[in-house]
């Protein structure tokens, strides 16, 4: 049997161990990229095989934190996929402006880039004081970084370009302080952001949300898990609330598609419609 087939067996056992020992279920993650990450994790820890990972997951209590940190993919950007922020600014925020209080759930927040981008967008629309952003992730390590809001300066050119394409109204430098090789997001952007642990695989509905952003997370899930998560989002949204997914993601493969209406063909922004009455 080829090494790669033996590794598949080891990975199945690793997934089983994570689930039984720690309650994390990766059984519905898209296999190809998951395998890449697990093998990368073993290599980074200088382990010879995935079986050694499994052994440590079972016997070493504290080890799970390092595993989740590495299996999560906290790769993001300020104003990533800027055209989506243009759509939010032009089509979604004006609709939300009539609410006295605006609840936003940003699921899969990585190191907070998207939550801070959203805070900036709301500020520029004069709506931030009325808003509350719940930024969640299943990785505590990612959440700790998100809370800090510190990013390497070498990413700044990309962020500036994104911000410009997103139709930013000020200068990105007005929202952060650059020091040494880092930039730190200003505290006032954090004032209405709550970072919290929430696992999309196993945790439940998240209150009366007006807007949910979950971008580049569903691409890691197989169809059944994607359906579960989209069901969560549907049930967390107020009627007429908005769901925003990544530009390479779609609802067309999902059972909940009928509960959402696409805003425009080019953009991954959907509106929750009233459930169809059962005859």
């Amino acid at each position: 049997m080829h090494l790669t087939d033996r590794q598949d067996i080891e990975i199945a056992l690793f997934v089983e161990a994570l689930r039984k020992r720690h309650g994390y279920d990766f059984g519905q993650y898209a296999p190809a990229s998951f395998k890449r990450r697990v093998l990368g994790l073993a290599t980074a820890l200088h382990l010879r095989s995935v079986s050694e990972l499994t052994e440590r997951v079972i016997h070493d209590d504290g080890f799970i934190h390092a595993v989740i940190e590495r299996l999560s993919v906290p790769v993001s950007e300020l104003f990533r996929e800027p055209q989506t922020f243009v759509a939010l600014r032009e089509h979604v925020l004006p609709q939300l402006a009539s609410y006295p209080h605006i609840n936003i759930w940003q699921a899969g927040c990585a190191h907070g880039e998207e939550a801070y981008s959203m805070a900036i967008l709301l500020r520029e629309a004069g709506m931030y004081e009325r808003a509350q952003i719940y930024a969640t992730d299943f990785s505590d390590a990612a959440l700790a970084k998100a809370q800090e809001g510190i990013y390497p300066s070498r990413e700044m050119p990309l962020y500036l370009e994104n911000y410009r394409k997103a139709g930013g109204k000020a200068r990105l430098q007005d929202y952060c302080t650059e020091k040494y090789d880092y930039l730190k997001m200003h505290d006032e952007l954090r004032a209405h952001i709550t970072f919290a642990n929430h696992n999309l695989v196993s945790d439940g509905v998240f209150g009366e949300m007006h807007l949910i952003l979950c971008r580049n997370v569903l691409i890691y899930f197989t169809d059944p898990l994607q359906d579960r998560v989209l069901g969560l989002f549907r049930d967390s949204l107020v009627r007429g609330g908005y769901l925003c997914i990544g530009i390479k993601e779609s609802l067309s493969f999902s059972a909940v598609a009928a509960d959402f209406q696409l805003l425009s063909r080019e953009l991954p922004v959907f509106r929750r419609v009233a459930p169809k009455a059962v005859p």
């Binding site: 296999p31 890449r36 691409i219 890691y220």
Partner: peptide, 18 residues
């Protein structure tokens, strides 16, 4: 900006891994 992968069931998947 996305990695492209092929899954065993012969469909594509994308990732934004490093």
């Amino acid at each position: 900006r996305y990695h492209l992968l092929v899954e065993h069931r012969r469909h594509f998947s994308l990732s934004v891994d490093e």
